[in-house]
Design a protein around this nucleic acid. Structure first.
Lengths: 145, 145
DNA sequence: GTGCGTGCAAACGGTTTGCATGCTT
DNA sequence: AAGCATGCAAACCGTTTGCACGCAC
């Protein structure tokens, strides 16, 4: 986990090399998403930024997340839900998804990262990334039942 | 891979035990989805059913897929796209997704299915399912470049 | 006959887009 | 000064819903 200064420096550099202008909105959106651990949707993120200055429109949040995702500054998480959810991928990780409350939690799984893929995958094409998604019911929901 | 008769019998039984009525529309939708290998969206599926009898409305396709998913007769695939895509899960499998053409291909990976999850996952809650999603560029898109 | 499933049409929610203005470079 | 980024508002698309009719049970 990087500290805030490092993260900021990394963001600035990433924007530069992607040819993206450094605007207060983009900075705020990135900072807010980088601090979040719950993979917020665009709308959720917009709520959290309401009180910030400058006021950021929802459109800009959508556009900015799209731009970030395009340039690898953020990632859209794959879920079976309709609403898109985003994250800044600090370290290689995977997702636990609670089928009741839809909460998404990160976890590390080095053995999976290192595991050899089946041969047929090589025949399919060139692999760029892999992710594990684990479904279940989280402790909180189990107790709530 | 089951043959059509077996699949039909399985479907009938699954509907019965789920308390779902056996309608021509449901049968057609299931058959079409079971034959598809490309994880179609509701709208794509509706297109394919256009010529069939009885004519099936798009609403019914949506509703039926939702019902199927609820009862485990079909599954919504987790992707980073906005449009939902569905499949009938014949055997345990995982997904290759081409980041260019968005095609989704199934593959088997028994080693992953059997692999031990990290301890922290047990602490999170009760696991019900796991899926691997592998991203890359498929052969066709590599050559097209 | 009962009531679930369907089709129609209208509503809905999340997301995208055209345009004029503003601010980064 | 040039042109990308933003905000506004309207459009858009995939999906959901209320209602009345029809069909599986």
């Amino acid at each position: 986990m990087r500290n805030k200064q490092e993260e900021f420096a990394w963001f600035v550099e990433a924007c530069r090399s992607a040819g993206l202008r450094l605007t207060p909105q983009r900075l705020e959106i990135f900072r807010e998403l980088a601090e979040a651990t719950d993979h917020p949707s665009a709308e959720e993120l917009h709520q959290r930024l309401r009180s910030k200055f400058p006021p950021i429109s929802l459109d800009t949040v959508y556009r900015t997340l799209g731009t970030f995702a395009q340039h690898g500054l953020a990632h859209k998480v794959e879920t079976a839900e309709s609403q898109g959810r985003f994250e800044v991928r600090r370290v290689r990780h995977h997702h636990l998804i609670c089928s009741r409350c839809k909460e998404i939690v990160d976890f590390r799984w080095e053995a999976f990262d290192a595991a050899k893929l089946p041969d047929e995958v090589g025949a399919w094409g060139g692999v760029e990334n892999r992710n594990a998604v684990v479904y279940g019911v989280c402790r909180k929901c189990q107790e709530r039942k």
